[in-house]
Amino acid sequence: MRGFALVAGILSILAPLAIADDPAGPVSDNAVYLRLLVGIGKPMLVTGYLDETKGTGKGYDAAFLDLDGDGKFETRQDFGTYTLPTNGEERPDPKIRIQHEDCDWVLDLRYSRFTPVDGVAQASIRWTVTRGEEFYAWFINGRVKFHTDPEAAAAAEPIRMGPPFTFKIGTRTEGRQGLVSVGLMDMNGCTLRLARQDGQVVSPTLKLFQDGTEVLLTQASYG
């Protein structure tokens, strides 16, 4: 973990240099730039922007990414659409897909509105990582900022799809009983919503001790 933190720290320092020049450039005046740090062993730095390719105000429909650090946003990923279950409305389904470390990493921006105010767009993010049938994890409810200025984006913390993670412990009393909740959080403020290994759900283990004696051992449940 320390090794990763060191690598991530170095990348974080170097990353402002990594926003690429794009000869074509975005179509939209409201294109927003982002940086992703993806993976655990050798985190991969991805830079890019979300664009409205049909023109400003027409809706974000594609991401342009620099996946190999060569300074060019040459990978285009078009967004699909999804149907709102409540009224059947078709909406853009912005997702960025990255292959790294034998895994599929997907940044899901479905519930975000990117239209920036004063150059900054607040975004709600989710992300998943999948390795075949072997592993799946889904993190939800993170908050990040996207910038219309590439340099501001380069100076901001990257979105981290991967470690470090921390546990958030919630406690409260209700009547005569105590309630304890555990949530695994990433650096974007996302919470682990579901994890599966070999088809089995994996959830945090919670142990409580009093006077050195284990008084509770349980699997926390997602909900």
Partner: peptide, 9 residues
């Protein structure tokens, strides 16, 4: 209580 939380991913 002392508390220990863990998850193996």
């Amino acid at each position: 209580y002392d508390l220990e939380a863990s998850i193996d991913l």
